[in-house]
């Protein structure tokens, strides 16, 4: 049963990703990206990372994409449907895509990760208590640094979006 769900959500995520790349309209591209993020949250659930699935929906599909849509509609960028991508852009992008895919598949074939069974110890990734415990013991310093980073980002955004006086 989980196999069926995996294939459904993996296909949905990949279709959404292709929608982001190839849609002419930026708003529909953002909608496709929301679909991709939701399918990926479902994949996280299949991997028993329930907390991260919730975070994914709240932060990515919620906050980040709302910000994106807000900016897209605020800027109101004119449609550039007339401008077709040149043959060089197509070739360069496809070569980049091919190199990445070849590299990843070569590595995964060399390392042989095929028949590895999931070995998650009980009550680790799944339980929120274990998550919080790790976060406030082993990873206390990264946690503090992340909080400081958010503060810096907030100040930076305020400074950046302030109206610049041109003398």
């Amino acid at each position: 049963m989980t196999d069926v769900f995996f294939y459904i959500f993996a296909t949905a995520a990949l279709a959404g990703a292709l929608g982001v790349v190839f849609s002419r309209n930026t708003v529909s591209g953002a909608m496709c990206l929301i679909g991709t993020f939701l399918s990926m949250a479902s994949l996280f659930v299949l991997l028993e990372a329930y907390f991260l699935a919730v975070i994914q929906v709240l932060v990515y599909a919620g906050a980040v994409m709302v910000l994106f849509l807000f900016i897209i509609m605020l800027l109101d960028v004119k449609e550039t449907a007339a401008k077709k991508a040149s043959i060089y852009t197509w070739a360069a992008s496809l070569i980049g895509f091919g190199i990445l895919i070849t590299g990843v598949f070569a590595i995964s074939a060399a390392v042989s990760i095929k028949n590895k069974a999931p070995t998650m110890p009980e009550a680790s990734g799944t339980s929120l208590k274990a998550f919080g415990y790790e976060l406030f013991t082993t990873y206390l310093l990264p946690m503090q640094v992340t909080g400081f980073l958010l503060l810096i980002a907030m100040i930076g955004v305020i400074v950046l979006s302030k109206k610049v006086n041109t003398e």
Partner: peptide, 8 residues
Amino acid sequence: VSSLLFAI
């Protein structure tokens, strides 16, 4: 799936 998403 992950590498395909990254490559796309």
